[in-house]
């Protein structure tokens, strides 16, 4: 040990310190996991958009929205943290055939399902507006599910300058 050049010893100390720091971080992460899992209101785990669509709709065929379902969203969203969107639809809202659920799905968010809205015939018209967060430039989908089980989908690409989902 004493015969080694001083520079070597310093390098080794630095390396050891880094290793120790890494180990501490790894330990903290593994300890944090079970605690987080116990908390109420856990978000869905990260998943791919294909899995989300499969989970929600189970591969049922979707019709293009066309004139019946429209999505208004900015072409370019400068701030991904607040992207105003508006959904307009002229689908019927009668007691036996109405738009029951409206899903907002952002393809590249960690959890693609942004929000699920449920309407009743008393709403009178299926038009909803809200602000969503988008992680990066991606397709934004809106799927309307009617009470008869028909699915209408509309898809638009939104360019995002600064992502809005943190880190």
């Amino acid at each position: 040990m004493d015969s080694r050049p001083e520079a070597f010893g310093t390098a080794r100390r630095h390396a050891l310190r880094h290793l120790a720091a890494l180990a501490a971080v790894a330990g903290a992460t593994s300890l944090a996991l079970p605690a987080a899992a116990q908390q109420a209101g856990m978000p869905q785990p990260d998943e791919k958009v294909e899995d989300t669509l499969k989970r929600l709709f189970g591969g049922r065929p979707m019709q293009p929205g066309g004139d019946r379902l429209k999505l208004e969203a900015p072409m370019i969203a400068e701030n991904g943290a607040v992207v105003p969107i508006r959904i307009e639809s002229d689908l019927p809202m009668t007691a036996d055939n109405y738009v029951r659920n409206v899903y907002i799905i952002a393809d590249k968010n960690r959890r693609p399902l942004n929000a699920k809205f449920t309407l009743t015939p008393d709403a009178g018209r299926a038009s909803i507006a809200t602000n969503v967060r988008l992680a990066s430039t991606s397709d934004l989908r809106v799927v309307a599910e009617t009470s008869t089980g028909a699915l209408y989908e509309v898809k638009r690409e939104v360019k995002v300058t600064v992502g809005g989902c943190g880190g």
């Binding site: 959890r111 942004n114 449920t118 008393d122």
Partner: peptide, 24 residues
């Protein structure tokens, strides 16, 4: 007293959320 609108939201909804919905 009659339900008209319901939403399940996630962290992907912006801070200080805004909701616009119809009521007949």
């Amino acid at each position: 007293g009659k339900k008209v609108f319901e939403a399940e939201t996630t962290q992907s909804v912006s801070e200080n959320p805004l909701f616009v919905f119809p009521v007949k």
